[in-house]
C-alpha cells in the first residue's frame, strides 16, 4: 500500500514521538518524586498519580520505541472492536467462504478501508493515498510543504495579533492560505476571506459580545 520510503518516514516519526513520550514520562516521574508520593499516615500525596502515570507512560512508550527501532510494525488488529467486527462482518456464510473473507476492516480512524465490492474505499475524505498525486496534481512532497506552510502561517498569525488584532491577522492568514497555499485567484481569496472574517465578527463580536483584541492599528474592535 505504501511505498517503502513513506513507511520509513512514518517509522522515523514514530520513533521520535515514542522517544519524546518516554522522556516526558520519565521527566514526570522524576519531578513527581519531589512532590511527595505519600502524605502522613500513608495517604495519597500530590506526587503519586503523576509518578505512577509518568512511569507507566515511559514504560509503554519506551517499549514502543524499542519495537520501532527494531523495525517491528505494530499490529493494528488487537482491539475488541476489531475482533467483534471481524466476526460480525466477515461471518462466514457457511463452508469455505470464510477462507476468502478479508480480515475485518477496522471501524475507527483513517487507516481503515472497507468496501462492498472488495476494492479499496478510503474512509473520511482521505482522498488519494499518502503517496499518490491528488486531483490538483500535488505530490506528497508538495502537500508536506503545504502542511508546514500552513502550520508556520498559523504561528505567524498568532504572533501578529498584538500588531494587527485578532481578526486582522486572521484575515491575513485566510488570504495567505487561499491565495498562496491553495493557489486560488487573489480576488476570490480576498472576497471569501473578507466574508469569512465579517461572519466571524458578526457572530463573536456582534452577537456574543466578545471583546476581541484590536492590536496597534485597531481592526475589529
Amino acid at each position: 500500500m505504501t511505498a517503502p520510503a513513506a513507511r520509513r518516514g512514518i517509522a522515523v516519526e514514530q520513533a521520535v514521538v515514542y522517544g519524546l513520550l518516554t522522556a516526558l514520562g520519565l521527566g514526570a516521574l522524576v519531578m513527581a518524586l519531589d512532590y511527595g508520593l505519600f502524605l502522613e499516615e500513608s495517604r495519597v500525596g500530590p506526587g503519586l498519580v503523576p509518578a505512577v502515570v509518568g512511569g507507566l507512560t515511559a514504560l509503554i512508550a519506551g517499549w514502543e520505541l524499542i519495537a520501532t527501532l527494531r523495525g517491528h510494525r505494530t499490529p493494528h488488529d488487537q482491539g475488541l472492536a476489531e475482533v467483534v467486527a471481524a466476526a460480525a462482518v466477515d461471518a462466514p456464510r457457511g463452508g469455505a467462504s470464510s477462507q476468502s473473507a478479508a480480515p475485518g476492516g477496522p471501524p475507527s480512524g483513517s487507516s481503515g478501508s472497507m468496501s462492498p465490492d472488495g476494492g479499496p474505499v478510503q474512509i473520511l475524505g482521505s482522498g488519494p493515498g499518502p503517496d499518490d498525486v491528488d486531483i490538483f496534481g500535488r505530490t506528497p512532497e508538495d502537500r508536506s510543504r503545504q502542511l508546514w506552510t500552513v502550520s508556520a502561517a498559523l504561528v505567524v498569525a498568532a504572533l501578529l495579533v498584538p500588531l494587527l488584532g485578532l481578526l486582522g491577522s486572521l484575515f491575513v492568514l485566510s488570504v495567505f492560505v487561499s491565495a498562496v497555499v491553495e493557489r486560488r485567484g487573489w480576488v476570490p481569496s480576498l472576497v471569501v476571506s473578507f466574508l469569512a472574517v465579517a461572519a466571524v465578527y458578526g457572530v463573536f463580536v456582534g452577537f456574543l459580545g466578545v471583546p476581541l483584541p484590536t492590536g496597534l492599528i485597531g481592526i475589529g474592535g
Binding site: 503523576p50 509503554i60 512508550a61 514502543e64 499490529p75 488488529d77 477496522p106 475507527s108
Partner: peptide, 23 residues
C-alpha cells in the same frame, strides 16, 4: 482502551498521556 483504538497498548498509552496532562 479496549474499544476505541485498534491497538490496546497504544490506547493505554494515550489514556496515560491524557491522565498526565490532567495532573
Amino acid at each position: 482502551v479496549s474499544f476505541a483504538g485498534d491497538n490496546r497498548r497504544l490506547g493505554l498509552l494515550m489514556a496515560l498521556v491524557g491522565l498526565l496532562i490532567a495532573t
